[in-house]
């Protein structure tokens, strides 16, 4: 292990390290702690500039209730769920199929097609913006939930396919070979042999795509207008305009927007990190 394990050094060093850890963490998360603290303060503290001091009054419930009663926050949260969940289902399913095709079959365009998906994943959103917006307006998908999840699903299919293809490629090929010799149909090999084996990849992709799409802000601005289809990220911005300088309410709303991906991360931590660090080790 590098650096040298701390348990092999002197007790004083070990103690120093363990004492310093929480301090480093607090410094690192200072901005987050500050808004968490602010979200339970009253307006008085905000105006007197009390940022790190003890709150003069605790308004946890009042602030969070205010966010829901004085704004469309509940609608925004629901919209985010209704955009995110179908995106995850569609993009992961499509990627399972496409990844299987690109990993298992040897045909001439397999690699170019694979690179197409990879490249699509890196392009700037702006190059898609005008045509996708125009297309959505033309087809009546502008300012709808479906308009957003269809686009997200298509775009995220690139990343998911990259991931799935590499995952399936790493499976033992003999499994497929022997299934073919047995005379099993191709789709059955996919369904009964490969799909059960890629479950970890599906889990990893599901949490990652959930987080990516939940946190999307750009497309929310490009593809929506009113309150009815806006996800929480765009909603929080709108709230920021509405609650000018009511930082306790803005903080509460921001934390609400952050909770679902954070919860997802904590519940599925192993999969999340396995997904993100794909390729970081050989």
């Amino acid at each position: 292990m590098f650096p040298r394990p701390i348990e092999k050094s002197t007790p004083a060093k070990r103690f120093g390290y363990q004492a310093f850890l929480p301090i480093a963490l607090i410094i690192w998360l200072l901005p987050l702690l500050a808004i968490a603290l602010t979200s339970i303060r009253g307006a008085k503290d905000i105006n007197s500039g009390n940022v790190f001091g003890w709150p003069s009054e605790f308004k946890l419930l009042e602030n969070y209730t205010a966010v829901f009663t004085q704004s469309e926050a509940a609608q925004y949260m629901l919209n985010s769920v209704m955009i995110t969940v179908p995106t995850v289902i569609i993009s992961v399913s499509l990627a399972c199929l496409a990844g299987y095709a690109l990993a298992i079959y040897r045909f001439r365009v397999a690699l170019p097609l694979f690179f197409l998906f990879v490249a699509g994943n890196f392009i700037p959103f702006q190059i898609l913006m005008v045509p996708v917006r125009d297309m959505s307006v033309q087809t009546g998908l502008y300012d709808t939930i479906a308009g957003q999840f269809l686009f997200h699903a298509a775009f995220q299919t690139g990343f998911c396919t990259l991931f799935m293809r590499n995952f399936i490629k790493a499976l033992p090929f003999d499994l497929i070979e022997s299934a073919r010799i047995e005379g099993i149909k191709e789709w059955k090999i996919f369904w009964y042999v490969v799909l059960p084996l890629v479950r970890p990849a599906i889990a990893a992709l599901a949490v990652l795509i959930f987080t990516f799409v939940w946190n999307d802000f750009f497309w929310a601005n490009v593809l929506t207008q009113g309150e009815s289809a806006k996800p929480i990220t765009a909603g929080v911005r709108a709230l920021n305009g509405q609650f000018v300088n009511n930082w306790h309410l803005v903080s509460a709303a921001s934390l609400l927007a952050a909770i679902p991906p954070v919860a997802m991360f904590f519940l599925m931590q192993r999969h999340f990190i396995a997904g993100l660090t794909l390729g970081a080790v050989k």
Partner: peptide
């Protein structure tokens, strides 16, 4: 079989990707 099968598996993803990603790049 082995030449056709991959296209069945690829088709949905390719169609989606072509409509929302590849097409718009050229349109832009």
């Amino acid at each position: 079989k082995l030449a056709i099968a991959p296209w069945f598996f690829l088709a949905p993803a390719l169609v989606f990707f072509a409509i929302y990603v590849v097409g718009p790049i050229f349109e832009s």
